[in-house]
Design a protein around this nucleic acid. Structure first.
Lengths: 111, 111
DNA sequence: TGATTGGTACGATAATAAACGTACAACGAT
DNA sequence: ATCGTTGTACGTTTATTATCGTACCAATCA
């Protein structure tokens, strides 16, 4: 009676549920800001391990979860990897110009 | 030999010292975001007590200090009151568009 | 099947941050 | 001089967050 393993999935907030303070909080961590900037520059999906973050796997999981729960990244499984992409359209729809100004500020400020 | 009391003064960071993550962190608190939005809407200097914050005086002092140290507000004494104003020009120079997008997002998101 | 890869879950710890109360300081007015 | 107003300083408490380690799971590969 071994149950079928459930397909792995994660919950993402709807764009209507985004909260500004939560987004700002998520972006206020240097590591996470770096992740977002890297995603924006690359323009493609990236696995968690592609970032070579200077923290352990479990801490990495934590940061990606904060970004996901704030609505900043979209995650989906591809094999064993979890692919991350920016929710640009959703963010722009709810907070117009915010991501762009944060990203250009991040470049100027060198994080 | 009673020393003259020093004129009260506070330290403000130079615009060149602004750090994006610190600014985002400062703005990520609902109370502080409210303060900034009120300052922006009013367009004038406001004393700390003009905000009628739902916290004690000492907590209020704390939040204004966070905003000041991030470079978001300018403070000066006027009598016993501490007058606060936005450092709009400095912020726009270092992080172009950031404050504007945060403020318009705050309105949409109703904080 | 078993090992490897990439990531999660959970619990613990340490650092940071929000909130408060009390005591106090500077200024203005009485 | 002393009182009310406005805010600061300091120490404490509580809540949140960043980090880690260990154990584990699902997918792929040999």
């Amino acid at each position: 009676m071994t149950a079928e393993p459930l397909p792995r999935q994660v919950g993402h907030p709807l764009a209507t549920e985004f909260r500004l303070t939560e987004v700002l909080q998520a972006l206020s961590d240097p590591l996470r800001l770096d992740i977002v900037a890297t995603l924006a520059e690359s323009g493609v999906e990236l696995s968690c391990s592609a970032f070579h973050l200077p923290v352990t796997k479990s801490t990495s999981t934590h940061h990606f979860r904060v970004l996901r729960e704030a609505g900043i990244v979209q995650q989906r499984y591809e094999g064993t990897a979890r692919m991350n992409s920016l929710r640009r359209q959703d963010l722009d729809a709810v907070f117009p110009g915010l991501l762009a100004s944060v990203l250009s500020s991040a470049v100027r400020n060198e994080r």
